[in-house]
Design a protein around this nucleic acid. Structure first.
Lengths: 154, 154
DNA sequence: TGGATTTACTTGTGACCGCAAGTATCTCCT
DNA sequence: AGGAGATACTTGCGGTCACAAGTAAATCCA
């Protein structure tokens, strides 16, 4: 059916797997150690802070974070308990719950975001030249573009 | 402390996160749908088949797979129950358990490996030119090299 | 030699996540 | 209008994982 992967292909594939695991793992560990928050929770806060009015529909937030609906519900439970996020029913659509960043949530995020970004730099960006950075983005864009069209079958 | 990420940096970073999630997710889904096996289990079988005598010490296998010792113990439980892997105490060091690929395990792996590789091609490699592939590998190598030296502190 | 330390693995426990099912609401179609 | 189906969220449940503690064995060292 298919031939094996050659050296360059295998290096790229293993690189993706190992690098993403290593970088994400390091960021997760730092975030927990320094601020007692997981990257999952951080991701919620960061997304909400980028959103219009610091609020998003649960379903949009879930898909933005690669999370299942139930996963997001429970993740939000923790953030709500810590008063970093608020739940608000939507006026437009009463099925919808909005996740809203609280003032405390925004303050907290603003405190930790610089350290997180610093981690992204230290573990990822700082090891790449400008050219490598551009090449990487372009390669990722190619893959993402290919992904939507190859979603079912290829 | 740190300035924000510029567009190229952000594109590379989000690309890594999104592409690895999307590709791994697609491979996981295909492997489960077509062969009823998770990528975690597949990874164990694949590693063992590459190893000398189709066997590895638990601790080496765990670190190769980015898995904690307890995680590997339980993952192996399932594979042993399905007769794909065997546990053997090491003669050299009686603390050590060896995970050994069984004949059934090898047969099974040989059946599914082509499909898995096909998935890697379809979702990842096929979207990249040779040049992009080389650039990607080189970028990943840079990051991995930087990682060992920046392991603690930077 | 023999006790202290390190290493390898397993088990107890708790966190997280996805799927499936349940409820509420909206939308579409006749 | 109103019923069928789609959509949004939550809850029950099972699977997976990591951390901590426990056990066994090897290594170090005085």
């Amino acid at each position: 059916m298919t031939e094996w992967l050659d050296d360059e292909e295998m290096a790229a594939w293993r690189g993706l797997v190992d690098v993403s695991a290593a970088v994400m793992g390091a960021l997760e560990a730092e975030l927990i150690a320094h601020h007692g928050i997981t990257t999952g929770d951080y991701g919620v806060l960061a997304r909400l802070s980028d959103a219009q009015n610091s609020r998003m529909r649960m379903c949009d937030l879930a898909s933005a974070l690669h999370l299942s609906p139930s996963g997001l519900t429970r993740r939000l439970d923790g953030l709500v308990r810590r008063q970093l996020v608020d739940r608000q029913p939507s006026a437009d659509d009463r099925r919808v719950m909005l996740a809203v960043l609280t003032v405390e949530g925004r303050t907290f995020l603003e405190q930790i975001a610089p350290l997180h970004l610093d981690g992204v730099r230290r573990h990822f960006i700082s090891h790449l030249s400008r050219t490598q950075l551009r090449n990487l983005s372009s390669a990722f864009r190619s893959i993402e573009r290919g992904f939507v069209s190859t979603d079912r079958d290829g």
